[in-house]
Design a protein around this nucleic acid. Sequence first.
DNA 1: TTGTAGGCGTTATCAC
DNA 2: GTGATAACGCCTACAA
Lengths: 342, 342
Amino acid sequence: MRHITIKDIAKALNVSISTVSRAFNDKYDIRKETRDLIIETAERMGYKPNPIAQKLISRRSYNIGVIVPEFINSFFPQVIMGIQKVLIEQKYQVLIMSSNENSETEKENLITMENNMVDGIIISLSCETKNIDYLKQMIDAGFPIVMFNRVNEDLPIPKVVFSDYKWSFFATEHLIENGYRNIIHFSGPKNLSFTINRAKGFADALRKHHLPVSGSSIIESGLFVDDGYRCMQKLIDTGHLPDAVFAVNDPTAIGAIKALKKNGLRIPHDVAVAGFSESSLAELIDPALTSVMQPTFEMGIKTAQLLLQQIKGNEPGRNETIVLNGKLNIRESSARKVIPAV
Amino acid sequence: MRHITIKDIAKALNVSISTVSRAFNDKYDIRKETRDLIIETAERMGYKPNPIAQKLISRRSYNIGVIVPEFINSFFPQVIMGIQKVLIEQKYQVLIMSSNENSETEKENLITMENNMVDGIIISLSCETKNIDYLKQMIDAGFPIVMFNRVNEDLPIPKVVFSDYKWSFFATEHLIENGYRNIIHFSGPKNLSFTINRAKGFADALRKHHLPVSGSSIIESGLFVDDGYRCMQKLIDTGHLPDAVFAVNDPTAIGAIKALKKNGLRIPHDVAVAGFSESSLAELIDPALTSVMQPTFEMGIKTAQLLLQQIKGNEPGRNETIVLNGKLNIRESSARKVIPAV
DNA sequence: TTGTAGGCGTTATCAC
DNA sequence: GTGATAACGCCTACAA
């Protein structure tokens, strides 16, 4: 006999299996002595409840699906750790999948999760999510879903996001205050809400300081190192060198830095750079990158809590959005501009 | 009625549930027409088999546990992607946990996995694993476990490792061939096999080229950025500057680079640096880091396959070790030494 | 307070 | 070829 069951305990103690079962679910009447006896012998016999049987009878899988666009950079792994902390404590099992920034894979992930009968899903959209019909369908069917970070504001579900506008504004203002005037924003794909918010924060900061916001102030680059590299290189090639770049995220900022260095330009002397999202890279690259830090772990915690609330039925406004605050880590890449003596 | 079951289909078609069940498990006799009819209506009704019921009756959880020391750096996430590729295809669910390089947490992870009745475990040891009694116990009990990368060779289970000795040898030889003579190895914690193998490869390469291997040639630093930084700083402070450092992994190498830069030393001009493990950082930092690349994704695939073999009972030598090959990515940090003109 | 019996959704072993 | 029926391990009315 591989695993021992309540049946074994019942036999060993000459009681019925229901009595044994009751001993573990203390919502039932049971004599204290028998209960203690059962618990004790169960422990001695090395009994562990079979979660699968429990799941079957509770008609809940106690599985939660988590879909992230990637987990190679440190951001999503950190959020996942927060998510797991909450869910594992509550006896949930977490099924983590990566969409690899691919809309098709994302849909496949959703289907895999349905097949595994997850009780709910946490998702951060892939950057190419244009077609979100499948997700919409699930939402309409009332399936518990929470989004975080890579969010689409049109979907009527709870969201956990970062105060993108605010910190984009502050980061831009920081560049301005450090003497930079001709600042360009490398922006992300338009279908993600944070792209819009960060761009808006950027533009508003310029306006506040009476700096011109032209069509060329914001360049839709993308989210990856290559994107930042490519766009920076193009600016260099076309002679439209700004004196600072504020990038939608760290990989893009790092790409920009690579291009600048490659072309013999100094950072921040020739061009300052600031990023967003505080990857573990920020401190390691040279020069160290100024970046907005998001509370990743906390984001995971909040997201998981929101999902549990929804699953447990206390739907607190199916459209609640939690906005998390962060801070700006100022480093060398945005050091005060040295105005050349005339 | 939330999810529809074979019972529903049976009722709808006026057949017995066993017939419906048979239609899906084609190892049984069933008339082709009835089968087709059942499959078709099942599809129309949106039937999906309940994996939990299947698990219960098959007495298998179809859960596999994966324990890694961390997933903040890109190495483990990439391996995990390989693992998932194999397992998800085979209908397994993957339970990923991080030990956070902590021996206690590692044990807790193992217990959580047992409670979730995983069919097998894939583990890469935390760096502080001194006490591996619990793991040993499980192995002795015949529980299917496979280790990868962070391996302890004393444990009689299948392992998937990298050709550490060989590539450590080659990387060291590369430094020698590029003109470096006074080379120091930053080594990892002794309880991990790769630490030993990489150190041995390093020492043997020196010997082959008739370079002295002294007690101070190998410094037990650790595995993290801070470790590399600290050890490099100490060498600088004590005036024992080598002309090259070969680090046990990339984070340590990057730590060394940080320390060198901080002290105004040039890389590779003053001190060359090479790493191991090819993190995504290698190309991004400045100067780009020479590093041994391991086939992470493939490592995941092989590991998962080995575990499945073991689970399915074809135990091919409980102690098989698969050794994967890699390559050396040569970058600026180890560029040929410029011998100063006399 | 405890035991009996039925059911969660499958699969598998019998008969028919 | 098909249909009862008994499991799998657990929970929970209901009866005792």
